[in-house]
Every structure is written in C-alpha cells, then in structure tokens.
Design a protein around this nucleic acid. Structure first.
Length: 282
DNA sequence: CTCCAGGTTCCGG
DNA sequence: CCGGAACATGGA
C-alpha cells in the first residue's frame, strides 16, 4: 500500500503551510501527510522533524518540486521590514513557493478567475479526472493535469460541464493557441519578465494577474507580484491608508519596487496571512 | 434571497 | 489612462 519512505533534509520548511497557502490545488491529506503529483510523479510526503519523508527514489524530484534550495533566510532579508511584512513573515515562516509545471499552473489560474479556492480545487480535480492521465499510487488513483493538446480537443460545452462557467472559453482558447504553437511556453521561459508577461497575456483569459501567477509559480520568476482582490485590499488598507484615488497602475508601480527581488514570496506571505487572519474578524 | 469569490475584456468619458 | 459592467457558479 504505502511505498517505502526515505528522509531528505528540509530545514526551514513548513510542508502544511506550503500545501495550504493557495498555490497548489490538488493535494489531499493522507495519514500523517499528503498525496499529490509533482507533474507526472506521484508523491506521498510527510514531515518528520527537519526531514521530509518521500517515497524511495523520488528524493531529487521532491527536493526540486518543493524548492528546498530556495534560500529562505536570504529571501527574508530582502523583504521590507515593515509591520505587515514582519507579521506575515512570522505567521508564514517556512512556506516555500514550489516549482509547478508551467502549463498546469497557467491553466489552473485561468480557471481561478473570480472563484474561491475550494471551487478552484473542484475544477482542477474534475478536469484531471476527465481529461488527465490516471496514475495508480498507494492504492488510489491520481490524475495528471490534462495537456493543452487534450483540452484543445474538447468542446466548450464539455469543459463547461467541469463547472468552468465563462472560463471554459478561455481555457479552451489558451489550450488551442498553445497546441497550434501560436504561443510557446518553452519560448516564454527564455524571455525576461516583462516580455514573458506580455507573451502570456496574448492568451485568452490571461491578464496581468493570471500572467503574474503563472510567472511566479510556474516559471520561478520570484519577483512577479500578482495583485488579486486580497492583495489589493492589503495594499490599500496598509500601504496606502487614507490616500485618495489610488489607481491600479499606482499599486502596481509601488509593489514592483517596494517588495524587492523576491516580491513574489512577499506577496504570497501577505496573501496567506491576510486570508487566514482577516477572514475571522469579518 | 443576496452577496462575493486569487479577473479579463470591452466600452464610454 | 480610468471607472463600470458583463460574465457563470457555488457557498456563506
């Protein structure tokens, strides 16, 4: 049933936080840990002290996927040390931004527009179950995220059955453009942040925010700073308190510089902290 | 029943 | 460039 496990060093790593902060949408609790896919590789993961337990033979894949080599201490040192960041840092210490497959990440965030996290998970599981590839693992069946080629074969009506709503047209359109080679994610990977973002924004359903999520979580552009409704609230209520008529452009210019070289990390810390602590008092 | 959710796109000042 | 509105669906 359960595969043989082996431990790998994982200092400064909070697995639960990393899986629960809204960057991944298909991992499931299992026993003392979680199961999920790192691209095509099924993993069971569990913390044991400063070690991460993973199936024998998947050590390198797990190390890479969970970005255990991101220099967290150095990253924290680049954060602005204001009150909000200090609080978010304390709350989220050990959270890592994992290395997601580019298409899986991009597609998932196309389907995330105006949806709550549980809905995004629901959509992800449904797309995987219908159009992904089954992978047997530890007595259960996991499903890979469907390729652009497979999704491009679907009709919009079929995708709507996955509760996508108006996002179905966008996901289908993006899958088709990528399948036809009109946009190449391999090429995007070779562009600088600005050009990469512009290229991604050519896809339907991909605007500034979704492109930045893809860059941050799928292309390891750790400076990318997605501004969603939560981050916008934080910026307006904390960093622009009492300021009149703060435009979206102004928020973007501020966040692009203020949070530094690892702005994406700062963003995710602020995002998760606010979501977990503000929600209770509303 | 009403409101809103990890937005994008289009349209009129 | 900026603010509004439409767009689907489900949970609170």
């Amino acid at each position: 049933m359960t595969p043989a496990l082996t431990g790998i060093d994982a200092p400064d790593f909070d697995l639960a936080l990393t899986l629960d902060c809204g960057q991944l949408f298909h991992w499931l609790p299992r026993g003392k840990g979680w199961v999920g896919l790192a691209d095509r590789t099924p993993l069971y993961v569990e913390m044991a002290g400063n070690q991460l337990l993973v199936p024998v033979g998947t050590e390198e894949i797990a190390r890479h996927f969970f970005a255990l080599n991101h220099p967290l201490t150095e990253i924290y040192g680049t954060f602005p040390q204001d009150e909000a960041m200090v609080a978010a840092m304390a709350y989220c210490r050990g959270m890592r931004l994992v290395r997601q497959p580019a298409w899986e990440c991009l597609a998932t965030f196309i389907t995330s527009a105006m949806k709550q996290v549980p809905h995004i998970r629901q959509i992800s599981f449904e797309l995987r179950r219908r159009y992904g590839q089954p992978v047997e693992f530890a007595g259960t069946t996991l499903y890979t995220y469907p390729t652009p080629e497979r999704l491009a074969e679907c009709t919009e009506a079929e995708l709507r059955e996955c509760k996508l709503g108006f996002r179905a047209k966008n996901l289908l359109g993006a899958a088709k453009m990528i399948t036809r080679g009109e946009v190449s994610l391999e090429a995007v990977a070779g562009l600088n942040d600005g050009l990469a973002r512009a290229e991604l924004c050519r896809l339907p359903g991909v605007g500034e925010k979704v492109a930045n999520c893809a860059l941050l979580f799928g292309f390891e552009r750790l400076r990318a700073f997605p501004i969603d409704v939560w981050i916008e609230r934080i910026l307006r209520e904390i960093y622009f308190r009492k300021k009149r008529k703060v435009t979206a452009r102004r928020l973007r210019e501020f966040s692009d510089t203020y949070f530094g070289a690892y702005g994406g990390y700062a963003q995710q810390y602020l995002f998760h902290h606010a979501r977990k602590t503000w929600k209770l008092s509303r």
